[in-house]
Simulated assay, not measured.
Amino acid sequence: MKALKISGVIIGILVAAIVIFAKINHVAPLSMVDSESYDTYSGIALKGYDAVSYFVSDKPAKGSEAYQYQWKDAIWQFASEDNKNSFAANPSKYAPQFGGYCSFAVSTGFSAGADPTSYKIKDEKLYLFNGPEVLAEVEKSGEQFWEIASLKWRNK
């Protein structure tokens, strides 16, 4: 009987830890994600990084409140007026794939927040990841990863 009580306590702690982890990392099943919006837990897409900067410079740049643009229920910030105008002319060219969620999480059927400094440009598209370790694992997995992630996103 005592073992059952201890098991119940352990299970309760594990469930609480999983719930806390999910909330911190914004994890949810893909079926709960709206394809018409972007991961904007803070209200700002890409956590304030300039979406165009990924394509025109060596590394992503932080955007500024001075150069903002509203698109798909998100506020997008840019480092310059030129970048803002480029985005406004063709947002889908610059916006991250999979709603800005971690591409690895999408490949497993979930959404999770992404680190805008962990990214990959593939076939002229921006993909985000939860961190450098996740990106490194994806780099090892080959083309099958991209096919699975795209399929999961389309079929959510």
Score class of each variant (00 low, 15 high):
E139W: 11
A88N: 01
F55M: 01
D58I: 13
A89P: 11
Y119S: 02
E133W: 09
L14N: 10
L128V: 08
K122W: 06
V52Y: 04
I44N: 09
A17H: 09
V9L: 13
N83H: 07
L135Y: 13
V134K: 00
D115Y: 02
M32D: 15
G100I: 00
E133Q: 14
E124M: 12
L128E: 02
F129N: 01
F55C: 05
F21T: 10
A114V: 05
S141I: 09
D73M: 11
V106Q: 02
H26P: 06
A51P: 15
S92Y: 13
Y41V: 15
S53Q: 08
G113Y: 02
V56Q: 06
P96I: 02
K84A: 07
I18N: 09
A136P: 12
Q144N: 14
S150C: 02
G131R: 01
R154N: 14
Y41S: 15
G12W: 05
L4K: 15
E139A: 14
K72I: 06
P60L: 03
T117C: 05
D115H: 04
N83T: 05
L14A: 13
G48T: 08
S107E: 07
T40A: 07
K23V: 15
P60C: 03
L46E: 07
N85Y: 08
K62I: 09
A61F: 10
N25C: 00
S92A: 13
A89Q: 11
K140Q: 14
D73P: 07
V56L: 04
I20A: 09
M32L: 13
T40D: 03
N83S: 02
S118H: 02
F55D: 02
P60V: 06
S141L: 11
K23Q: 15
P132V: 12
K59V: 13
D50Q: 01
Y69R: 01
K84D: 04
E36Q: 12
Y119M: 02
Y127C: 06
K72G: 06
I121T: 09
A3V: 15
A105L: 00
E124F: 10
G113W: 00
V52P: 08
I24T: 07
K120W: 11
F87R: 01
L128A: 00
A17R: 07
V134S: 03
N83Y: 01
F78P: 04
L46K: 00
P96M: 00
K152S: 09
A136G: 12
A95V: 11
S103M: 10
A45C: 06
I18K: 08
S92C: 08
I44A: 03
K156I: 10
I6M: 04
G142F: 03
F110A: 01
A22V: 10
D73W: 08
I44E: 10
W146C: 04
N155T: 15
H26K: 12
Y119N: 04
Y38S: 05
F21I: 11
Y38V: 04
A16Y: 05
W153P: 04
A79L: 07
L128G: 01
N83Q: 02
K156A: 11
Q144F: 10
Q68V: 12
P60N: 01
Q144A: 13
V15W: 12
A66N: 11
